[in-house]
């Protein structure tokens, strides 16, 4: 506190904000949560349960999926919803447990940086992915690459 306030100034817990940020964050957590149940359960079913489960996962498997706009869209939605849902959840955890202003600011800066990195990197990978990269060994790429 830099100045002494005038006597009988009404106590303000925090500066009044004109935004409904916390309300929309609350709504988003519920909406994205519902969508993520379908997206993540579908992701786990196709990648870990059907076929040979975890043993089938390799470059050719991922390339086979991302050759289709269906799975590109699926994974892009899952990436954005999960990262924002998760980052917003961690923000709540930071607000609850980090008591010093500077600690909270430092942790939230770190959180924002990590979420930004994951969103930009993940989105770039999905959009610029080539299932048949030139120079790759035939054994590593999906079988449909040979007909090109």
């Amino acid at each position: 506190m830099s100045t002494i306030e005038a006597p009988r100034t009404q106590f303000r817990r925090s500066r009044a904000t004109r935004s409904n940020y916390e309300l929309w964050s609350w709504v988003f957590m519920r909406g994205s949560g519902l969508l993520l149940i379908a997206l993540v359960f579908g992701h786990l079913l196709v990648n870990l349960v059907l076929g040979e489960g975890i043993k089938q996962v390799d470059f050719a498997f991922v390339a086979g999926k991302w050759a289709s706009p269906f799975w590109q869209t699926w994974d892009l939605m899952m990436l954005w919803l999960a990262e924002i849902h998760g980052a917003n959840g961690v923000r709540t955890i930071i607000n609850d447990y980090a008591e010093k202003d500077r600690t909270r600011f430092a942790l939230k800066t770190l959180l924002l940086a990590s979420a930004g990195l994951i969103l930009v990197l993940g989105t770039l990978v999905i959009f610029t992915f080539d299932p048949c990269p030139t120079g790759a060994a035939t054994a590593d790429v999906p079988s449909f690459c040979q007909t090109r």
């Binding site: 470059f59 050719a60 991922v62 390339a63 991302w66 990436l79 999960a82 990262e83 998760g86 990590s114 994951i118 990197l121 993940g122 770039l124 990978v125 610029t128 992915f129 990269p133 790759a136 060994a137 590593d140 790429v141």
Partner: peptide
């Protein structure tokens, strides 16, 4: 999720 996106991003490096 952080680790999962980073390792999956390796598909953009090379299949190997």
């Amino acid at each position: 999720l952080f680790a999962h996106v980073l390792d999956t991003a390796l598909v953009r490096v090379s299949p190997e």
